[in-house]
Each structure stands twice: as C-alpha cells, then as structure tokens.
Amino acid sequence: MSTDLATLRGLAHLARLEFDTAHEQQMLGDLNNILDFVAQLETVDTTDVEPLVHLSQEINVLRDDEGHNTVSHQEGLRNAPRKDSDYFRVPKVLD
C-alpha cells in the first residue's frame, strides 16, 4: 500500500502541518513505510487470539474505603485567620 503526494498534502492540511519540498518527499517515504508495515500486520493470522481487554490479568487489591476524621474540629479552626465560635469567617462574596 502506498500513497501519493496529493494525499500527503491533504493530510498535512488537516493536521495543520507545513512541509517544504525536501521534507515533503521525506514524509511521503516515511508515510509509505508506515503503511507498508500496517499491511504486513494485516497478514498475521489472529483467529485463535482473544481480544485484549486489559493490559494484564492482574487484579488490583485495594483497601476498603472507610471515612474517618483525621483532623478534629478544633484543630481545623486553630489556624484559621478569622473564626466565629465553631465556624470559619470568610469575606462576603454575593450581595
């Protein structure tokens, strides 16, 4: 499988790429090499190969998600620049 210069220019336009004539010929050769490699891959017999869903068969062992307070209410208010008894005081945002 190979492509021509018009197809390369169309792909370059879609990808917003610009090539001068020297690089255009080099890119055309590289693109044809890639297409030839893909054509080789298409000839591989994969009839007995199952589709790959995950990259490995390993199963993640995760800990249980248990909520708990790591900072007490008083510790949280201790470093507040402004506080009012049990609450943070913040500047008014809306009228």
Rank of each mutant, 00 (worst) to 15 (best):
E24H: 01
E24D: 01
E24F: 03
E24C: 03
Q25P: 04
Q25N: 08
Q25T: 02
Q25E: 07
Q25D: 05
Q26N: 00
Q26A: 05
Q26D: 00
M27E: 08
M27I: 04
M27D: 01
L28W: 10
L28M: 08
L28K: 06
L28Y: 11
L28V: 11
L28G: 13
L28E: 06
L28D: 11
G29C: 09
G29Q: 03
G29S: 06
D30P: 02
D30V: 06
L31T: 12
L31P: 06
L31Q: 02
L31A: 15
L31V: 15
N32D: 08
N32L: 14
N32E: 05
N33D: 13
N33A: 15
N33K: 14
N33I: 08
I34F: 13
I34C: 13
I34W: 11
I34A: 15
I34P: 04
L35D: 10
L35K: 08
L35Y: 07
D36K: 13
D36Y: 11
D36R: 07
F37H: 15
F37R: 14
V38I: 14
V38R: 10
V38P: 05
V38Y: 09
A39V: 10
Q40P: 07
Q40V: 12
Q40N: 13
Q40C: 14
Q40A: 12
L41G: 02
L41P: 08
L41F: 04
E42K: 06
E42Y: 09
E42N: 12
T43S: 13
T43M: 13
T43H: 13
T43P: 05
T43R: 11
V44F: 02
V44Y: 00
V44E: 06
V44H: 02
D45H: 02
D45Y: 03
T46K: 00
T47S: 01
T47C: 02
T47Q: 02
D48A: 08
D48W: 05
V49E: 07
V49Q: 09
V49R: 12
V49T: 09
P51G: 10
P51S: 15
P51W: 11
L52W: 06
L52V: 15
L52A: 11
V53L: 03
V53A: 04
V53C: 01
V53P: 00
V53T: 07
H54E: 15
H54F: 13
H54Y: 10
H54P: 08
H54D: 09
H54I: 07
L55D: 04
L55Q: 07
S56W: 05
S56F: 09
S56E: 09
S56H: 08
